[in-house]
Write a protein that binds this DNA or RNA. Structure first.
Lengths: 153, 153
DNA sequence: GTCGATGCAAAGAATTTGCAGGACC
DNA sequence: GGTCCTGCAAATTCTTTGCATCGAC
């Protein structure tokens, strides 16, 4: 759980130190929670984890920190489903990129990776007249548990 | 602009007639606007187009109609960027599926299609333990115009 | 005439902004 | 000691819900 999250945390704190005027405690705590949890959290979830750790932070600071991290390219906001937007970690150097699987019944969100798919996406991006910086693929359907259960369970 | 939008409109009205108790005028007008515009609209944009056509409809009715159409599998809500959700038309019978290109500078949204990419996505979906019903790929980056212009232009 | 469809207005959820006080260099 | 950071609260944006009325069957 702290595997590549730890890498990301260190990298993010470095970038932050290099681009920010003063190192406040709230922002640092937010980065640490994101790294420890591996990202894919909503703003509310970040605040909740911080509360659990005995380091409560105001929602405004959470949103401001997430916005700053997004501007620095350290996280990527991903609007999934109709709920609040989630923030994925961006790997330091073109590391693994994951995609999202959402269950329409139970709402569960699962990340997944697929090398062949990734390559096809890169090729498709290169064919476009845009300069593509980022992509996300979301699959919606039923997770194994929910597709086994009868409708309206 | 009324090409496959016309097909969709007819199909959607049929499905609606078959599954709805009473045929109100507002819902019908909303379906017609969606078909004529080719989808990819926000709720606000739907209401705006209806006003322009001299057939104003309350926002609540727009949202209720869009929710119903989504339940019937006629449209698909697509949360793009941080703005309001957009509603894509769902082709009657596994027709063309398009993906989205978003410019991070000007915010413009462009749909695109790519057969090879589509095939790779289908294969990847089949490899997953989920029953995949739908997918969307979003590319973010800079459109040709914005990538030509200097930063902060 | 009944019951669903519609629209207004109020409520609700998610996010942003304004401002006063506290923390860092 | 000045300036950025933080957090509360109010404002904004997007969406849903309650309720009285209108219209289709």
């Amino acid at each position: 759980m702290a595997g590549d999250g730890g890498d990301w945390t260190r990298h993010a704190l470095d970038v932050l130190d290099a681009s920010v005027q003063r190192a406040g405690g709230a922002r640092r705590a937010i980065v640490e929670v994101l790294g420890a949890e591996g990202g894919c959290l909503t703003a509310d979830e970040v605040a909740e984890r911080l509360r659990e750790r005995g380091r409560p932070v105001g929602m405004a600071s959470v949103y401001r920190a997430l916005t700053l991290l997004a501007e620095l390219g350290l996280v990527q906001p991903v609007p999934i489903g109709q709920g609040p937007v989630r923030y994925d970690l961006v790997a330091p150097s073109g590391g693994h990129h994951h995609h999202h699987l959402v269950c329409d019944r139970c709402g569960r969100l699962a990340p997944f990776m697929d090398g062949e798919l990734e390559a096809a996406i890169e090729r498709a991006g290169a064919r476009l007249p845009y300069r593509v910086d980022w992509h996300d693929l979301t699959f919606r359907g039923l997770c194994p548990t929910c597709s086994r259960a009868p409708r309206r369970g």
